[in-house]
Amino acid sequence: MTRNVMVIDLRRCVGCQSCTVACRTWNDLPMDIIYNPVLTEGVQGDWPNVHRNWLPTLCMHCENPECVPCCPTGASQQDEDGTVWVDHTKCMGCKVCVNACPYGMRDVSHMVPRFDQYVRKCTFCRDRRQNEPGKDPYCVQTCHQKARIFGDIEDPNSEVSKLINSVETFRLFEELGTNPQIYYIPFLGGHR
């Protein structure tokens, strides 16, 4: 069975925010919604030994998502390939799932009419992959540093499978037991 995951190579990310812009473009997001912010804690260390790390984030498409079982309308769903998405035709905008997500990767736009708000989130470009099978999410295609790699972890020949099995990776907030499906290759020097 297919299980889509993303590997993000932090050694390659330069913080250009291309993925953020690409995502906004593809999903036609309102101004106050960002599916994949690229975070940084700023410049670290003392001159001349300084460095700056970037942490691209997005929905973790957890194997055991907190946001799906708490949805009272069934709008929050998980596909067989692990993609977590929201059917906005079913969402009533109660924001339980927004509060349930430990990563803060769901949001409700306040720039749409007050009583037409629904929860939005990254879907690994589900529409794009369904319409054109084999295509990667738009953030993956856009990343010129090739820092984002998308694929099927169940396929031993896939790039993600090889990477996860060959280099050290970590995941965010693993201790919560949600089993997030975004794997990070640590920064140079092993900084996490």
Partner: peptide
């Protein structure tokens, strides 16, 4: 966010 469809709360 969408009060007119509050009845969906009973669907799961």
């Amino acid at each position: 966010g969408q009060p007119p469809v509050f009845w969906r709360v009973f669907t799961t």
